[in-house]
């Protein structure tokens, strides 16, 4: 079931509003094994989101391709569910219907749909809010709904585009725990785009660094889990942080000043 995701010579050229052409992705090549937790890190505007959108099938690449196992990505599908940066919980559906949305599209039978929905609502701790309107939930709770909806469709690859960027620190830490629990339970491949190095250190098996659309480094994060404060303060973690900062064009001195 689980498949290797391979990026092969991926190019993406955008037209700027002034008519100028910009390379959002510049010949990106790498491979991700099943069950890996990959964080894509880079400055804003350097192609992170584009990479994820091309993988989701929302954006055709200008050249190159992405393969899941043998299958080439042609368009969006339930095998690559995505959690977006903005609030994408449908405000016109109850929480339960939001989680069921993908299952209904897959024409899963009623029994299974209900039990799956109940399971994922429980997993993100929203069983009590199943019949609420999204407008009645807080931002963090709505993110959990989006997470549950993405998990419920049963895809083996989950794409997350700075999903927790707009949340406060405590909610974010709490959602990291939820996400890691779900990941350990399901062993899905997760692509997680972020600009937050700490977040990447907490979550990732592997960090992909993008700068000006180019893949500049591919850093394995072999720190023990759970990645609590001590682990993140260890020498290995600090080395990784330094490497990332150096690639992003920030020297150590600059970083400490910030």
């Amino acid at each position: 079931m689980s498949r290797v995701v391979s990026f092969e010579g991926l190019w993406c050229v955008f037209e700027h509003r002034s008519g100028q052409l910009v390379n959002a992705l510049h010949d990106v090549n790498f491979e991700v094994q099943p069950g890996e937790f990959v964080c894509v890190v880079g400055r804003s505007g350097h192609g992170k989101t584009t990479l994820l959108r091309v993988l989701a099938g929302l954006q055709p690449p200008t050249a190159g391709q992405i393969r899941l196992g043998e299958e080439v990505v042609e368009g969006p599908g339930a095998d690559r569910a995505m959690v977006f940066q903005q609030d994408t919980v449908f405000p016109w559906l109850h929480v339960r219907d939001n989680v069921e949305f993908g299952l209904r599209a897959l024409k899963v039978d009623d029994e299974e749909r209900k039990s799956t929905t109940a399971h994922w609502l429980d997993a993100v701790g929203l069983t009590d809010f199943a019949d609420s309107w999204p407008r009645e939930l807080s931002g963090g709770m709505r993110k959990r709904v989006a997470l549950a909806a993405a998990m419920a469709v049963g895809s083996d690859v989950i794409l997350m585009d700075e999903p927790f960027g707009s949340l406060d620190y405590f909610t974010r830490r709490n959602l990291h725990d939820v996400l890691l629990d779900l990941w350990e339970e399901t062993q899905k491949t997760i692509f997680f785009v972020t600009h937050d190095i700490e977040e990447a250190l907490i979550l990732a098996d592997r960090v992909i660094l993008l700068a000006e659309g180019k893949l500049v480094d591919d850093i394995p994060v072999d720190l023990p889990r759970p990645r609590d404060e001590d682990v993140r303060a260890s020498a290995g973690a600090v080395d990784i942080t330094k490497t990332i900062l150096a690639h992003l064009g920030i020297t150590e001195e600059e970083a400490t000043q910030v």
């Binding site: 190019w11 050229v13 955008f14 037209e15 052409l21 200008t62 050249a63």
Partner: peptide, 8 residues
């Protein structure tokens, strides 16, 4: 150049 020409 090829890629850019295609985009154009």
């Amino acid at each position: 150049l090829d890629v850019r020409a295609k985009a154009q």
